[in-house]
């Protein structure tokens, strides 16, 4: 038991470290001249500088060191919560993050909760609706929701709910009303993804022989569904919780940009536009941490919910990625 928990935690830490390293490698090794890139980001013309100035700037950003030294410098900083200094805004990245992460967490968590509720409800209705046309309609709905680009959903919402109906403010970070449309925009995608996985899982569960056994006992429809189908169908869907939460985080990039909200997502968009490498690295690290943490929690909870999986062996790693694939990125 303890061994299982410690093993999972160690695994999560290793994955996180590897993800950080990979992102570092992409950001620091791919561009032809990091110096030029970073100077451009800082809004300085390299030609206008003297050799000493260049050297001074290089020293300031640590670029005169070897790539390993830089890597070590950054990594040890991250462990201490120090993500370096933003190239464009000249303030510590951790300050930027801490100012803005509250907004994004509020948005992501609300969206995750809404999608869990809406996705499960949709899947449940789509599976158990008695009237056939309704069932077909509900089963098709998630594919529709996953097909619309998020920026389109967001713009449509602004046009319709803000400009036509005047219900909610089109942009801004102030108050509860400004949160509703961004949350709904994200939820359209994430609840569709969840519903697709759940509907498939329900379908498979209902064709199992033990459902026939339960029905043969004389149980009512709802008792069969609630006592026998629900738990068995929800278990595999639990494994994509990490994907769902990760999706709400990445969705904040487009959503916050369209709705002009000052969160980490918009920070990321601006940082990429300005090629502000330390900020991008920090945002990716934070998102990966959230994803890995959620997956860790699921891994630790899973054996408690599924008696077939013991704490000594862990759950099978066959996450239903293929189904989710249709809407990620």
């Amino acid at each position: 038991m303890t061994r299982y928990v410690l093993g999972r935690i160690a695994q999560a830490v290793i994955v996180l470290w590897a993800a950080y390293t990979l992102t570092f490698a992409i950001l620091f090794l791919l561009p032809s001249d990091p110096m030029e890139l970073q100077l451009a980001a800082a809004g300085v013309q390299p030609d206008s500088l003297s050799a000493e100035q260049v050297a001074a700037i290089k020293h300031q950003f640590g670029l005169d060191q070897s790539i390993w030294a830089q890597y070590w410098h950054h990594l040890s900083g991250v462990v201490r919560g120090d993500f370096g200094t933003s190239l464009t805004q000249q303030v510590p990245v951790s300050d930027l993050l801490s100012q803005r992460i509250g907004q994004t967490l509020l948005l992501s968590v609300s969206a995750a909760v809404v999608s869990l509720v809406a996705g499960s409800a949709l899947a449940y209705l789509a599976t158990f609706a008695r009237w056939n046309p309704l069932r077909v309609l509900l089963t098709r709905l998630p594919a529709l929701g996953a097909s619309f680009p998020q920026f389109f959903v967001a713009l449509f919402a602004i046009q319709f709910f803000s400009f036509q109906l005047g219900w909610f403010p089109a942009t801004g970070t102030q108050g509860f009303a400004s949160l509703i449309m961004p949350v709904l925009t994200i939820s359209v995608l994430t609840s569709s993804v969840l519903a697709q996985v759940l509907i498939k899982s329900f379908d498979e569960t209902l064709s199992q022989a033990y459902i026939t056994t339960a029905r043969a006992k004389g149980l009512s429809r709802s008792a069969v569904h609630l006592r026998h189908a629900l738990r068995n169908a929800a278990l595999p869907a639990l494994t994509i919780l990490g994907v769902i939460v990760g999706l709400t985080v990445t969705s904040s990039i487009v959503t916050e940009t369209v709705f002009t909200r000052d969160g980490v997502g918009k920070l990321a968009q601006e940082a990429v536009l300005a090629q502000d490498v330390p900020v991008v690295l920090a945002v990716v690290t934070v998102a990966a941490t959230i994803f890995v943490l959620v997956n860790l929690v699921v891994d630790l909870l899973y054996p408690l919910l599924d008696p077939r999986i013991s704490h000594t062996r862990g759950r099978p790693s066959g996450r239903p990625v293929a189904v989710v694939e249709g809407a990620t990125l």
Partner: peptide
């Protein structure tokens, strides 16, 4: 009135109960 003993015992029982 009618009880059923299904075909395959390996899959006939709810695995999580």
């Amino acid at each position: 009135v009618v009880g059923l003993i299904p075909q395959d015992p390996m899959v006939g029982l709810n695995p999580t109960q």
